[in-house]
Design a binder for these strands. Sequence first.
DNA 1: TGGTCAAATCGTAATATTTACGATTTACAA
DNA 2: TTGTAAATCGTAAATATTACGATTTGACCA
Lengths: 142, 142
Amino acid sequence: MDIKQALNLLKQNGYKYTGKREMMVQLFFEEGRYLTAKEVLDLMQKDYPGLSFDTVYRNLALFEQLGIVEGTEWNGERRYRIHCGGDSHHHHIICTECGRTRAIELCPMKAIFGQPENFEITGHKFEIYGICVECKEYEKNA
Amino acid sequence: MDIKQALNLLKQNGYKYTGKREMMVQLFFEEGRYLTAKEVLDLMQKDYPGLSFDTVYRNLALFEQLGIVEGTEWNGERRYRIHCGGDSHHHHIICTECGRTRAIELCPMKAIFGQPENFEITGHKFEIYGICVECKEYEKNA
DNA sequence: TGGTCAAATCGTAATATTTACGATTTACAA
DNA sequence: TTGTAAATCGTAAATATTACGATTTGACCA
């Protein structure tokens, strides 16, 4: 998922092209890590001082729906990162401090054979949590 | 984890034995599924009309710390179930409607060899989400 | 058994996150 | 250029969680 792809996705689905949306996509692309709504808001308010909650949350939901970003949640907050991997399904090691990630190619669903009884599967989550070296280093000096 | 074990854990760690704590443990034991704080509150207010938020949240945190319950979160809400499995580490298929679960013995961490570079691992989550037959049936008739 | 004290709980307020909505602005196409 | 629906703003409401002083209660000991 690069910026052009993302902006095309918006266009193809009849959504308007706005500076805020472009910046938001660009932001996710540049950061390459999980961001909370608040982080997105803060980072964007450098350029758009009056940016509204509504805009951020609405666009986050839209981007997730279109597959521009992928979402998860931990520590009671919803978080998003640029949708990575294209077609190849994979998972992440995630730094719970800063949201940085590292891809894991292994998907445990491949080892689950058939449908389990009494459940219609709708999704799954496999995430490894940790502290990245950058955050570890930062903690040491704190 | 049965009720006596749980109440012993409280005693052994110097916490007091109260009717509310006993009922809370019993509730998790009987339900055997993930419950939100609100569900716990509602279910307990049958017997304790004036039950406080504070009591529920504080005890949920305590129970999780003592290993009486295990927690996770989805749909923006923290949820808890009785800690199952004793020593045997495992995961769950979870009905996102009602919180009912089914154990999965497979743990994908066994297939991860060594420590990944640049991350100090602190935890992991593998959950399969779905709709259980009971909820599916209920939806049909709705 | 009764008294003491710290823990537990209550009642309520504060905080934080997310969602909602009328009013206004803006992108886009005719 | 102009009309229209979408996007955004500004703000409020809804929801979940945490916090805290006041009060009650369980556990221990004399």
